[in-house]
Computed example of a mutant assay.
Amino acid sequence: MNHSTFNAHEYFQKIYARPVLLEAKKLSQVFKHGKTERTILNQLDLKIHKREFICVIGPSGCGKSTLSRIVAGLDPYSHGELIVDGELIKGPSPERGMVFQGYTLFPWKTVKENVMFGPLLKGASNPSAEAAAREWINIIGLEKYENQYPHQLSGGMKQRVAIARALVNEPKILLMDEPFGALDPHTRQKMQKHLMDLWQNIDITIIFVTHDMDEAILLADRIVALKANPGEIKEIIEVHLPRPRTPELMLTPEFKKLRERVDDLVHAQDDEVDPALEDLPKIPLMTSVNED
C-alpha cells in the first residue's frame, strides 16, 4: 500500500465493519486515600475493533497506564463497564497479554523457560509448552539465545522475549505500556518495525501506551488522546497514513501535519498539572559552593 493507492475512508470502513473486541462504557477509576478522592479516569466511552492498533497518549497523570492495567485485569475499576468479547473483565486472563517498559522477565529462567511459563501455567505438557515457546522464539529471531538468561541479553532482546512470552498464550489483546521507552533510538526504531510486522501477520489487537507522539503516529490506526485531571478522552484521531509505514514517512508533509495536531492536543494541556507536581517545595541551599 502506498500514498497513491491508499484510501483512508475505505481502510477505516473495513476496521469499523469488524466486531467490537473491547468496549468501555462510562469507565471510571477513583483512588481513595483516607477522606480524599482522586478521579484518575472519568466516564470513558471507547470501542476498539478486532485487529486494530490503538495508541494511547496524553500528559502525565492522565491515566494512560491505569487504563492499560485495568484492561489487563491487574487493577479494578470503580464504575462503569469494561467488556472484552462480550464478557465483563473481572481479573487477569491469558486472553489479555501485557508487556511493560521494565522487562519483567524471570532472571533465573532462560529465554525458553520464560516463554514456556504461560503455557505451563495453563496446564500444557512440558513438550507442548516447549514446542510453542520455540515457535515464538523463532518468530522473534532469538533461537540462538534460547538457553541464555535475561542478564546476558540486550534491552531490545529482552523486550522481544517479553513480547513472545505474552503472545505464546495466543491473547486476543496485547497491552503494551511504554514498552520501548528504555531503549536507545536505533533499537527503538527496529522494535517498532518488528512490532508492526508481528501485528500485520498475526490475529492480534494492540493497545499501546506511549509518551512519544511520533511513535504513536507511526504505529496506530487510531490515537486516543487523554486529558488529565480527571483522565478523560479528549479526542480520538484516525491516522490517515498508508501501511506499511517506515521512518521515512516521518519526513512527509502528511506526517508533519498530523504531528502538529497531536502535539497541540497534548501540549494544550500544559496548565493541567498532575496533582503530584503541585506545591513543589522550594529546594533549600545545601552547599556553600557558588558560581565564582
Rank of each mutant, 00 (worst) to 15 (best):
S4P: 01
S4R: 11
F6P: 14
N7S: 13
H9Q: 15
Y11E: 11
Q13H: 15
K14C: 09
K14F: 06
V20N: 04
E23Q: 15
A24W: 07
K26E: 14
L27A: 10
V30C: 04
K32S: 14
E37D: 10
I40N: 05
L44C: 09
D45P: 06
H49Q: 06
E52T: 07
C55I: 06
I57L: 10
I57V: 15
K64W: 11
K64S: 09
K64C: 11
S65R: 10
L67G: 08
V71C: 11
D75H: 13
P76W: 08
Y77T: 05
D85M: 00
L88M: 09
I89H: 01
K90S: 05
S93K: 01
P107H: 14
T110G: 07
V111R: 03
K112G: 05
K112Q: 13
P119R: 06
G123W: 01
A124R: 03
S125Q: 13
N126R: 14
E130W: 02
R134H: 04
E135Q: 13
W136N: 01
N138E: 15
N138I: 04
I139T: 12
G141I: 05
E143S: 12
E143I: 12
E146G: 03
Y149S: 03
G155Q: 07
M157R: 10
Q159F: 10
Q159E: 10
V161K: 01
I163W: 07
R165C: 07
L175G: 08
P179Y: 04
P179N: 06
H186V: 15
H186W: 08
T187P: 06
K193F: 09
H194C: 02
L195N: 02
M196F: 04
N201V: 03
D203R: 08
I204R: 01
I204M: 07
T205H: 05
T205E: 06
T205A: 09
F208C: 01
F208R: 01
F208L: 00
T210K: 08
A216T: 04
L218M: 15
L219Y: 08
D221S: 13
R222V: 11
I223V: 12
I223T: 03
I223D: 00
V224N: 00
P230H: 02
I237C: 00
E238L: 04
R243A: 08
R245Q: 10
R245L: 10
P247A: 08
L251C: 03
P253T: 12
E254K: 11
K256E: 13
E260G: 14
V262L: 13
V262M: 09
D274P: 08
D274A: 08
L277C: 14
L277R: 12
E278S: 12
I283D: 04
M286A: 12
N290W: 05
N290G: 07
